[in-house]
Design a protein around this nucleic acid. Structure first.
Lengths: 107, 107
DNA sequence: TACGCATACCTAGTCATTCTAGGTATTGAG
DNA sequence: CTCAATACCTAGAATGACTAGGTATGCGTA
């Protein structure tokens, strides 16, 4: 059972996680689960297509690595990805503030 | 051009707005636009079906009013709707906190 | 050695939500 | 008389993220 949905913030979460350093898809899922205290427990079918989309958009770049007999696709933020992350952070901040105000939630 | 999407928070926004008092759909759209400082400028095609869905779910109830020759469907929160609002507020708080942490956005 | 579990990737198709794009009807201003 | 604003509605499209399946390797254990 997945804990929480990403509700339109998936790219922000992935880009922010990659800002901590390069990582492969499976590791990103675990990192997101841990950093969020279990709130985000994303399905692979959610993350892999999203990474492919971000690569198409030029926000991330990937290369194959062989680690202990397992192939990994390791992703890193591009310069464009860093700009995209900053834009996503601003967008999230504005959005969350607006919801807080309307919803009567002080944080 | 619509300003911002509701990204899965539409029910929360509508229920929270109705917690200020009963209102009809068109007025809810204006109230949301104003209270959010223009951030939420929802299309009628977004709001009316959502209100119907909330009524189906028993969270709101409606009655027709005739005001200055115009028919209005005036909605109010039910008791169930109040509980739903509280649940949505908790859900939003948890979600927003988790995104803040992962996204590296301090607010 | 066979099994299951964790790791690691992938995609097709589905589903829910929300938007676009149309429609109807009334009132009031110009 | 026309246009803008008010006020409602829905069918269908688009979007985003999910379910549910698949492949394959390595490692521990029964």
């Amino acid at each position: 059972m997945r804990s929480e949905q990403t509700k339109g913030q998936l790219d922000l979460l992935l880009l922010a996680e990659l800002a901590h350093g390069r990582a492969h898809g499976y590791a990103l899922i675990e990192a997101l689960r841990e950093r969020s205290g279990g709130a985000f427990d994303l399905a692979e079918g959610t993350v892999y297509p999203a990474l492919h989309r971000l690569e198409q958009a030029g926000a991330v770049a990937s290369e194959w690595r062989e680690v202990a007999g397992r192939r990994r696709r390791v992703y890193r933020l591009t310069r464009r990805g860093r700009r995209a992350l900053e834009a996503e952070q601003r967008r999230w901040r504005d959005f969350a503030r607006a919801v807080d105000v309307v919803a009567g939630v002080a944080r």
